[in-house]
Amino acid sequence: MGLHYNNILVAVDGSTESEWAFKKAIAIAKRNDASITLVHVIDTRSFATVESYDRTIGERAETYAEEIMANYKKEAEVAGVVNVQTLIEYGSPKVIIPKEGVKKANADLIICGATGLNAVERFLIGSVSEHITRSADCDVLVVRTEKKD
């Protein structure tokens, strides 16, 4: 079997940490001749607080997701990753990424950033990366540092 990955799922949310995760994913994909699937989850729970669900929030979130995905995809292809897919999902990132994300990407490795939540938020909702680590059936790489090549 060997230490070889074929399909890497990278969770991106526009944060600095997910940027680092994305850069590491490119390096690992190239070493393994692996494909990359970028996943961005639009957290619909954050809209629930808006009394009458304001459509423009959802539309803005979608536009933003499509823009960052297009940029990441182009960057990965320019860097030499042959097969780059994108997934935009809706719901709770920590639930969707390790289950549906993995299934759709047929992933054998998830790469995500260590989410930059403050202590209070982490206590209340648990960090996304922690949750992915616990519930994924494949390997998970949580990126905490910028790539020093």
Rank of each mutant, 00 (worst) to 15 (best):
N118G: 11
I88W: 02
V143W: 02
S135I: 12
K99T: 12
T86H: 04
V50K: 12
S129M: 11
D13G: 03
A34Q: 03
A70Q: 10
C138G: 09
M1T: 09
D149I: 15
D13T: 05
I26D: 01
D108Y: 06
E67K: 15
D108K: 03
K103A: 11
N32Y: 09
I132Q: 05
I36H: 06
V142A: 01
T44H: 00
L3C: 08
K103N: 06
C112R: 06
L124N: 09
Y72T: 00
I125D: 04
V128E: 08
I36P: 02
S92G: 07
T37M: 05
I57Y: 13
D43G: 04
A34V: 05
E19K: 12
K99M: 07
Y72G: 00
H4E: 11
G101H: 02
K103M: 06
I125V: 14
Q85K: 15
K94I: 03
H40T: 05
S18V: 08
E67C: 06
E17K: 14
K30W: 10
K24I: 12
E100R: 14
E19F: 06
A70T: 05
V102M: 03
T133R: 09
K23H: 14
S127Y: 05
A79G: 06
S92V: 13
N83C: 07
G116I: 06
I68S: 03
S127L: 04
I111L: 10
R31Y: 10
I132M: 03
H4C: 07
K23L: 12
E130A: 12
L124E: 11
A79Y: 09
L141S: 13
K104M: 09
Y72H: 07
P93E: 00
A11V: 07
S129H: 15
L9D: 05
A136W: 07
K24W: 14
Y5S: 15
A61T: 01
I132F: 07
L3H: 15
V143P: 04
K103W: 00
F22C: 02
V41I: 04
V78R: 10
P98N: 02
E100W: 02
L3I: 13
Y5Q: 12
L124T: 13
I88K: 01
F22I: 08
Y64G: 00
V84W: 03
S15E: 05
I68V: 04
S129V: 08
N6M: 13
G116S: 11
D33I: 02
T44M: 03
T56C: 03
E100C: 01
G58T: 09
K148L: 10
T133A: 11
N118D: 15
V81P: 05
E59H: 14
V143D: 01
A76I: 01
H4L: 06
K94Y: 06
T86D: 07
E121F: 14
M69V: 06
L9H: 07
I88H: 00
V78K: 13
V39C: 00
R31T: 14
D139Y: 11
A48Y: 11
I68W: 02
V143N: 04
N32I: 08
T63H: 08
E100Q: 10
I88F: 00
T44N: 01
S46A: 09
A107I: 03
A48L: 12
V41A: 02
A79Q: 04
E146C: 12
N118Q: 10
E121Y: 09
